[in-house]
Amino acid sequence: MLTKNFLQVGDKAPNFSATAVYEQEFKQIRLSDYLGKYLILLFYPLDFTFVCPTEIMAFSDMYDQIKSLDAEILGISVDSEYCHLAWMQLDRESGGVGDLRYPLVSDLRKEISLSFNVLNDEGKSLRGLFIIDREGIIQHYLVNSLDVGRSVDETIRTLRAIQYVQSHPDEVCPANWQPGQSAINSSLNHSKEYFQSI
Rank of each mutant, 00 (worst) to 15 (best):
R101P: 10
D147N: 01
D107E: 02
L104A: 06
S151H: 11
V152L: 05
A161T: 01
Y141S: 14
T155M: 12
V165D: 00
I162D: 02
V165G: 09
I131F: 03
R127L: 10
S145H: 14
G136A: 12
D107L: 08
H168G: 03
E154V: 09
L108N: 07
D147R: 03
R109K: 12
S167M: 06
I138Q: 01
N117V: 01
S115W: 05
S125I: 00
S115R: 05
G128T: 08
D133Y: 15
I112R: 08
D121Y: 10
H168D: 05
D153H: 11
N120L: 12
D99A: 00
E154G: 01
D121C: 06
Q139D: 14
T155S: 08
V105W: 02
Q139E: 13
F116D: 00
Q166G: 13
R127I: 10
R157K: 03
Q163Y: 14
L126S: 15
R160T: 15
L126N: 03
Y164L: 11
L108H: 03
V165E: 04
R127D: 04
Q166R: 13
S115Y: 08
Y102K: 01
G123A: 06
Y164A: 10
E135A: 05
S151Q: 08
L159D: 10
K124Y: 04
D153T: 14
L146D: 09
V148Y: 13
L119E: 06
I156S: 01
V105T: 06
D121R: 09
L126G: 07
R101N: 15
R101Y: 13
T155C: 09
S106W: 01
F130Q: 00
V152I: 02
T158W: 14
Y102E: 00
V105H: 09
S106M: 02
T155I: 06
G123E: 10
N144C: 15
G128C: 04
D153R: 11
S167L: 08
K110C: 07
V105A: 01
R134W: 12
L129S: 04
E135V: 09
R109F: 11
S113R: 06
H140P: 02
A161P: 09
V143A: 12
E111L: 13
I138T: 09
D153I: 05
T158S: 03
I138G: 11
L146H: 14
Q166W: 14
Y141R: 15
L108T: 05
R109S: 04
R101V: 07
E154S: 10
L100P: 07
L126A: 12
R160A: 13
N144G: 08
E135R: 04
R157L: 11
V152M: 10
N144A: 09
